[in-house]
Design a protein around this nucleic acid. Structure first.
Lengths: 331, 331
DNA sequence: CTGTTAGCGCCTTCAG
DNA sequence: CTGAAGGCGCTAACAG
C-alpha cells in the first residue's frame, strides 16, 4: 500500500533521507559505498521519487509547458518531435496544450499550465492576449515563441522569417521567368504566418514592378482537398496564369492533384510552388517545388536554448532557423 | 516575489485557507457571499493554485501519462488530438512520452512518468516489458492500451481488430474479382499492427483458397516515398498482379504516385488499397480505396472511459472503435 | 561526506 | 456552512 518513499529507502539503507535525496538527484559528494547501499535499497523497494513533492519543495518543476495551435497540421507534430528530441535524456517533461489558433484558449491553457510551475513555456507566434503576455512576463519563467521571427520576442523567438520566405518564393519564380503569378491560400484569420508569407510574396513581386495576377482563398484551414478545389476554382475564371503559389504544401499537393486529374502540364502550362517541404511533396510524380521550413529543428533548438540557463538573456534573443528553397520539378 | 498562495487569498478575503480551497475546487457547500469574496480576492491577486502542492496533499495528480510510439506517423498525432479533445474542459493534463516503438524506452519513460503519480496511463499495443507490465499492474492506476484489441488488456483496450481489417481488405478485393493480389509493406519488427493486418489479409485469401501472388517489404518505416519505390520494385519483377494491398495509406499514396508517373491505369491494370483513411487519399486524382481507422475516436474514447471512474472494471474491458471500408476509386 | 531541522502549498479530517 | 490542526514527500539550508 502506498508507494515507497524516501523515508522507506533511507530506513532500509540505514542512512538519512537527505542522503537518499542526494543520491537520487546525483548532487553533492557521496561515498561510493553509501551510494551503492542506497541504490540497492531503491532497487529493492522499487522506489520512484514523487515529483509533486520534489517540485513543491524546490519551487520549480521539470515541466515545459507547450502551447500549440493545432495537431492536425503536421507542422506542429513536427515541432513537437523536435521538442521531445531536445527533452530526451533530461528530467524535463513537455506538457502540451492545443489552442486551436485561439488566443483566448491560449490564455486559459496558459493559466492552467502555469499551475504546474513549469520551468519554461513554449508557445507559437507573437499573438497573445494582454493577460497572457502578463503571465509570460514573469522573469522566473523562460519563454520561447516559435515559428516566426518577425516580431518582438518576450524572451526568445525561434523560427524563420515568413515574410522573407514569401519574398524568396516570389523572387525564385521571377528568376525562372514566370510573370503571371497567382496565389491560392487558406483562411489567415488564424494562420498569421501564412499571411506574412503572402505579404512577402506581394512585396517580392512589387519590387519587380509586378503584382499578383489572381488569387483565391479557401475559407477554412488548409488541406489537400481545399487546395485541389481552390485551384480548380481559380482556373475556372479563365485568367491567364503561368504559376501558382500556394499557402503551403498541403494546398499545393491538392493543386498538383487537380493538374494530374485535369491533364494540366506542370510546369509548362502551370508552375506550382508550396511551402513547408513536406515529405509528400517529394513523392509526387513530379517533386514539388517548395520551401523547407525546419520545423523539427525549431522545436529542438528552442528546448536546447531554454535549458541552457534558467535566466533570461538581457536582450530578447532571436534564433533564425532559416529556410531553403527546394528545387522540385513543378516550378 | 513568489506567487500568491492560498494563504494570501484567505487573508485578503478574511476567511480560512480551507474555505478558499473549497471554493477553488468547487467542493462542499459554500455561502454565495463567501464565494464571491474569495473569487474577488483570487482575481485581485491573480492567484493560480500550485498543482504540485495539490497533488502532494491529495496523493493523486490530474495527469494522464501518454506513451506514443512516434509522432512522425500522422496516426499518433490524430490519437493525441482525440486525447486532448477528451481532456478539454477537465483539469487533467496529458504528459506525453515518445517511445520510438521500443519497449525498453517505453519502460524508461513509464518509470519517469509514474514519478508524477498520474491518474492514468495511456499506451499503445499489448507489447510491454515484464517490468512495464508490473508497473502497469498497480490497481490504483487506470491503464488504457490503444490501437489494437486483439489481445488481453491490462485494464481497458481501445481500438480495432487489425487482423479483422486485413481480412476485410482481402474479402473486399476478392468480392471485386481481384485474384492476383500482392502486398507492399514496411518494416513490421516495430509495427506489430501492420503485421496483424498482413496476417488478416493472408487469412482472408486463404479462406478463398488463395494466397498472395507477390510481396515486397520496405526495410524501414512507412512513407510515401518508400511506397512509391517498393511498388516500383515489386512490378519490376514482371509477375502478373492485378491488385496491391499496402501496409498503410502512406505507402499506398506512394504507390499511386508511381502509377501516375508510369502511366499505369488504376484500377484497370492495377488496383490499389491502403489502410487508415488519411485525408491525402481523398485528394488523389482517384480517391484511394482504403480502410478508415478511427484514430481520433480511439484517443477520445480512451480518455472518456478512463475518466468515468477511478476504479478498474472487474474484467478487462475491450472497446472496439471499429473500421470502415472507404470505397474509393482505386480498387 | 552525512545528518538535522524546517518548511514548500495544499488537502483531509475532524470539530464546531 | 466554516475553521483548526496535521501531514503529504521532498529539498534547502545549516551543522557537524
Amino acid at each position: 500500500m502506498g508507494n515507497p518513499t524516501l523515508t522507506d529507502v533511507a530506513r532500509l539503507a540505514g542512512v538519512s533521507e537527505n542522503t537518499v535525496s542526494r543520491v537520487v538527484r546525483d548532487k553533492g559528494p557521496i561515498a561510493e559505498k553509501t551510494r551503492r547501499r542506497v541504490m540497492d535499497a531503491i532497487e529493492q523497494l522499487g522506489y520512484v521519487p514523487n515529483r509533486a513533492a520534489g517540485s513543491l519543495a524546490s519551487a520549480s518543476s521539470p515541466i515545459i509547458a507547450v502551447l500549440l495551435p493545432s495537431l492536425s497540421n503536421i507542422v506542429f507534430p513536427d515541432v513537437l518531435r523536435g521538442i521531445h528530441a531536445g527533452l530526451a535524456g533530461t528530467a524535463y517533461q513537455a506538457m502540451v496544450g492545443v489552442t486551436d489558433y485561439d488566443p483566448e484558449k491560449e490564455q486559459a491553457l496558459l493559466a492552467s499550465l502555469l499551475a504546474w510551475r513549469p520551468a519554461a513555456v513554449i508557445t507559437t507566434g507573437f499573438d497573445h492576449t494582454p493577460e497572457s503576455r502578463k503571465m509570460l512576463m514573469d522573469d522566473r519563467l523562460r519563454v520561447a515563441e516559435l515559428m516566426d521571427i518577425d516580431g518582438q520576442p518576450i524572451d526568445i523567438a525561434v523560427g524563420l522569417s515568413h515574410h522573407g520566405a514569401g519574398r524568396a518564393t516570389a523572387r525564385h519564380l521571377l528568376a525562372r521567368g514566370y510573370r503571371r503569378i497567382a496565389y491560392v491560400g487558406h483562411d489567415w484569420s488564424t494562420d498569421r504566418r501564412a499571411r506574412r508569407r503572402y505579404e512577402g510574396i506581394v512585396a517580392g513581386l512589387s519590387e519587380a514592378g509586378l503584382s499578383l495576377t489572381a488569387k483565391c482563398r479557401h475559407d477554412g484551414p488548409s488541406s489537400t482537398l481545399a487546395g485541389r478545389r481552390a485551384l480548380a476554382r481559380l482556373l475556372s475564371d479563365n485568367i491567364a496564369v503561368d504559376a501558382v503559389i500556394f499557402s503551403n504544401d498541403d494546398m499545393a499537393v491538392g493543386g498538383a492533384m487537380h493538374c494530374l486529374a485535369e491533364g494540366i502540364r506542370v510546369p509548362e502550362r502551370l508552375a506550382l510552388f508550396g511551402f513547408n517541404g513536406l515529405e509528400i511533396g517529394e513523392a509526387l510524380p513530379q517533386p514539388l517545388s517548395t520551401i523547407r521550413s525546419n520545423r523539427f529543428l525549431i522545436g529542438r533548438k528552442a528546448v536546447e536554448t531554454l535549458l541552457e540557463t534558467r535566466k533570461r538573456p538581457d536582450e530578447p534573443l532571436i534564433i533564425d532557423t532559416g529556410f531553403d528553397i527546394v528545387e522540385g520539378a513543378t516550378a
